[in-house]
């Protein structure tokens, strides 16, 4: 029996969601379904059961390497071209639903990032209120190499946080940046040493737990809005680009590659 891609525990008002799908928490139907089920579980908890949720990865390679490209390739190959638009839209609606729900959770969310935080993984991290990155973390939007743009809401979310020039740098070069650089750019809240992320997040969660719950929720709702129009436009642009030949060609090259370095941009 395969292990669940996620595990969740609650301790003294702090929830801890651990991503644990090898090789690097790729987001496909299994991860999306697990996240949906987790969000439903959260929704069933009493309002005051949690004040903070920490999201981290137990996988050595990093926080999350992004969309499950092998599953995406298999889906495109297995279905008629005429069905591609509908199936892509259906998946995007699901994953956007997940990202939007995490983004708007009524308590503080802390992403603890180490290693690879690429593409959809970066987009997942950007739903968190605060990102604590270990020195090993690297952030990247490699989607243009596949002939697409980020499709899980990452650009509108990053635009909420940093300037347009920073986004152009990342998006139009596809380069990865270190935790130190990401911190200097205002993309993340803290940089900590290798292996120190969880402890730093727990200390931050303890601080968050001291605040009046109503004030904490109001503060988040006041400052953090969903960029709804841009998110909707992103979905349409993603589908438009994904239906062109370059995506399938790039995915085929990816799945056929025997190179040791498929994740090196």
């Amino acid at each position: 029996m395969s292990e669940s891609p996620l595990r969740f525990s609650v301790n003294d008002g702090v929830g801890e969601l651990v991503l644990q799908r090898e090789p690097c928490n790729e987001i496909g139907s299994a991860m999306t379904g697990a996240l949906e089920a987790w969000l439903d579980e959260l929704g069933a908890l009493p309002e005051d059961a949690l004040h903070t949720v920490i999201i981290r990865s137990a996988v050595r390679g990093g926080f999350c390497a992004g969309a499950d490209l092998r599953e995406l390739h298999a889906g495109l190959v297995a279905t008629a071209e005429a069905e591609h638009a509908a199936s892509l839209r259906a998946f995007l609606d699901r994953i956007h639903g997940v990202m939007d729900r995490i983004d708007m959770l009524p308590f503080t969310t802390i992403g603890v990032v180490h290693g690879v935080c690429f593409g959809g993984g970066f987009e997942l991290a950007l739903t968190c209120d605060q990102i604590i990155a270990e020195k090993s973390a690297r952030f990247c939007f490699p989607e243009l190499r596949l002939g697409i743009i980020p499709g899980f809401g990452g650009i509108p979310r990053l635009r909420r946080d940093v300037g347009n020039a920073t986004i152009r740098d990342l998006l139009l070069s596809g380069r990865s940046v270190s935790a130190k650089r990401a911190h200097a750019l205002g993309m993340i809240a803290q940089v900590v040493g290798r292996g120190d992320g969880l402890e730093a997040a727990q200390a931050l969660a303890a601080q968050s737990g001291k605040f009046d719950p109503t004030a904490r929720r109001a503060a988040k709702a006041f400052i953090k809005h969903l960029p709804r129009e841009e998110l909707d436009r992103e979905k349409e642009l993603f589908v438009e680009l994904a239906l062109r030949p370059p995506l399938l060609a790039a995915l085929t090259k990816f799945v056929d590659s025997t190179d040791l370095r498929p994740y090196l941009p």
Binding site: P23, C24, R60, G61, G62, G115, V116, K135, S136, A137, R138, C140, S173, G174, R175, S176, V177, S178, A179, K180, R181, L260, R261, P262, Y263, L264, P265
Partner: peptide, 30 residues
């Protein structure tokens, strides 16, 4: 370096950050 160190692509990504820190440079992936 991959063969000599016996590392995978994820570890190589980490190595880039270490090198940027050590030498105080930015190393664009491309």
């Amino acid at each position: 370096l991959f063969e000599a160190l016996g590392i995978d692509s994820f570890q190589a990504v980490e190595l880039i950050s270490e090198l940027e820190d050590e030498f105080d440079v930015e190393l664009p992936d491309y």
